[in-house]
Amino acid sequence: MVKAAITTPAATNPFIPFPFVVMSRRRETRDTVTLRLRPLRNVRLLAQPGQFMMLSVIGVGEVPISVSGLPRRPGELEHTIRAVGSVTRHLVALRPGDYIGVRGPFGTSWPLQLAHGQDVLLIAGGLGFAPLRSALLSILRERWRYRQVIALYGARSPTDLLYRRDLSRWQQRPDLVLRMTVDHPDQYWRGQVGVVPNLIRQVAAFFEPANTIAMICGPEIMMRFTIRELQKHGVPDEHIFLSLERNMQCAIGLCGHCQLGPFFLCKDGPVLPYSRLAPFSDIREF
């Protein structure tokens, strides 16, 4: 853990992280927290919803993490991180006042402009809600720009739901259709049980497929079935946007790990329309 301030050289070098300090830490679930970060110096790494940063725990390593919120003050960052391995375990253990390194922003963003005047379907599975939360917050901030806004969210169990305060606030909004489902309900669960694609059928009356922009992030299998369901309803492939993840060592198109056919997911993605992915989507292990 880095308790002491980080000083970096003045020379610009894309591999050098900028020092940030943890402002707050909110526990989301057993293994997931949301951190708010503030730059130590006067740097502004301004990320769009859908983009990601490389977060460094110096001495442990660096990993790609999406922005999950909007900055309250310019230059601030919000990230939701699940502890799954060595670097993320350290990130989740950070406390207010701790220092970390940040590079970015990287990659493509959600097509919010394209969605102006359209119906919007945000479909999240599990931790896939993190990158979509920033899109939803941005949409709700300029709600008048969009027609119907529908958010569908699936989690393993009620205790795995992220952003519970947000969810209960959003459920009150008349201008947002929010549906949630879990695989394993507990005795208090009053929402749906089952997989996310099933929710699409239930909200079909709310969106006009030809004029809908869908944004999806979640486990691969969930995205696969979600795409199929959207296609069945007539949403065109060019309007279905996915956020994909793959091993990334540099985030700037140089390390080669995140390739998916012609794409480097760090710079051509992580957000891509399904129309561009379709030729490779059925090729196993591509």
Binding site: A4, A5, I6, T7, P9, F15, I58
Partner: peptide
């Protein structure tokens, strides 16, 4: 080596 960091009493100093 992309960069080196030294832990010092004044904090972590990252150098090219």
């Amino acid at each position: 080596t992309l960069w080196r960091a030294r832990r010092t009493p004044d904090g972590v100093i990252v150098e090219l």
